[in-house]
């Protein structure tokens, strides 16, 4: 049962198409697992639909012959099917993530960042950073303050901090004011997708100087 959802502003920005790629990936991955947010997103899309379907003053006349040209294109050109890799259902990784890192968790190329914690940076546009984190059960996620917004989506296992518990499908939306000490819950090792629009500032675990080299 998913209890931590996306915020309205993230859903609106995703609906509008104005989020950085890494955030789009986190939002799409949560929605793939959460019908409540899928429905909320559809309601934000409906706002876009209402804005599109405005009265005469929202219109910009098409050039002469545009309808005929469009019909001609429909008749003369075959549709080009969009290249989309098939995704496997009920896998640990939701469909959108599979498109980036493959179907299987076992195929992920992890790099150690210390204390048993591993990560894989997912290549996206530079405005924000997406990474997969692997945190052994019972191990603390390095304490970090946030320079900007951070989304953490649980894919396997769970983590908890001082006030909350996050299981599979839950997404934590954190900002500058959030300072917490999440710990992977006992039981299964925790895998999550973490997205930030500013570099993580790890405290305690790694010296500040090391950050530029490790890319974290």
């Amino acid at each position: 049962m998913i209890t931590h959802h996306l915020s309205d502003k993230l859903l609106m920005a995703y609906s509008a198409g104005s989020l950085p790629e890494a955030f789009n990936l986190a939002v799409a991955s949560h929605i793939a697992m959460c019908d409540e947010c899928r429905a909320r997103l559809a309601s934000f899309d409906a706002v876009g639909g209402a804005l599109l379907d405005q009265g005469p003053e929202g219109r910009e006349p098409m050039t002469k012959g545009a309808l005929e040209a469009t019909l001609e294109r429909i008749k003369s050109t075959a549709p080009t099917p969009r290249q989309r890799k098939s995704v496997s259902q009920n896998a640990t990784l939701p469909g959108p993530l599979q498109q980036y890192v493959g179907e299987d968790v076992a195929g992920i190329k992890w790099r150690s960042v210390g204390n048993g914690v591993r990560q894989m940076i997912i290549p996206t546009s530079a405005q924000a950073t997406a990474r997969l984190l692997y945190i052994p059960a019972g191990v603390a996620v390095p304490d970090h303050g946030h320079g900007g917004m951070e989304l953490t989506l649980v894919l396997q296992g769970a983590f908890e901090d001082q006030s909350d518990w996050f299981g599979r499908g839950d997404i934590e939306v954190a900002d500058e004011s959030t300072e917490h000490q999440p710990v992977a819950a006992p039981g299964a090792d925790c895998i999550c997708l973490a997205v930030t629009d500013a570099p993580l500032k790890f405290r305690g675990l790694l010296p500040r100087l090391a950050q530029p080299f490790l890319g974290i």
């Binding site: 995703y14 198409g17 104005s18 989020l19 950085p20 790629e21 789009n24 990936l25 799409a28 991955s29 929605i31 793939a32 899928r38 995704v87 939701p94 469909g95 959108p96 498109q99 980036y100 996206t124 546009s125 405005q127």
Partner: peptide
Amino acid sequence: RRIDMLRRDRRPEPE
């Protein structure tokens, strides 16, 4: 279409 056309950030979608 606008995202493609204006070369905005890629926008993955849920299935």
